[in-house]
Write a protein that binds this DNA or RNA. Sequence first.
DNA 1: TTTTAATAGTTGCAATTGCAACTAATTAGT
DNA 2: ACTAATTAGTTGCAATTGCAACTATTAAAA
Lengths: 140, 140
Amino acid sequence: MHIENFGYYISMIHRHTQICFEREFKKFGFGSGQYMFFIHIAKNEGTTQKYLSEFLAIDKGTTAKAIKKLMHLEYVFAVQVDTDHRSSKLFLTEKGKEILPLVEEILNATSNKLKTEMNEIEETNTLISLQKMASNIKNL
Amino acid sequence: MHIENFGYYISMIHRHTQICFEREFKKFGFGSGQYMFFIHIAKNEGTTQKYLSEFLAIDKGTTAKAIKKLMHLEYVFAVQVDTDHRSSKLFLTEKGKEILPLVEEILNATSNKLKTEMNEIEETNTLISLQKMASNIKNL
DNA sequence: TTTTAATAGTTGCAATTGCAACTAATTAGT
DNA sequence: ACTAATTAGTTGCAATTGCAACTATTAAAA
């Protein structure tokens, strides 16, 4: 049976996590497709779409649309780079900073839900394995 | 940093796995959205859309569309259940059975790619953790 | 310096997915 | 037996995502 297949579980976890986020982030006007960008901008003020795409290993078109939405919602704003007019530095607005702790709380709650029934050792090992798998599949 | 967040890796692994499958399954005329159903029908001949949706923890509308596509491609056919005209039992066609080993090979290759640099103990532990997380997030 | 490459972002398209509203068939309740 | 409720599956809609083609800007090569 393919129950031994990692992909089966990865896909299931991913889909249900997205469903949770979709439900939880609705109150801020955005969905599961934006929170990663929001958090990364919060933790790396001044980052660009290029860096976001690289760091999240996500298509640049997808990034462009997510940022567009976050800017339209006024959680993020962009400042054109003086020395290169192709790219802009991204920052959270005041409105964005206000919801940041709430967004983080949702992320933590979901993360904790995932970790239910895991001790610290298992948690650490799982993280290591996930990192390994992510790097294995990215460089394909 | 949210690098310690499982979701970040889960999402990345999932997306890149889907990209692989999209590329590999193109030769059979289907994409990343059908293989799970195809495999589950192969291993459980006579299953129904209801069971598929439950087992894969996937929306029944999504299931309906995937099965429609697999039937249109003539990899799968449906036989109406005598005692309940609402549901149909699903089977692989001859054409479906022919590509089954090739599909399994692609799944195995991708699975092995994910497992690169993992020993057997780590592999087992990862599977257990994934199962745990899947069950944690499903019952939410 | 002028032409060619590469880079950052944008946009349109198609596929996947979940949700909600729907149909048709079956079961339960009265 | 008849009505109400449940169940299996279908369909339309919107959101996310990757891809390819595109623009505009910068860097490299001639």
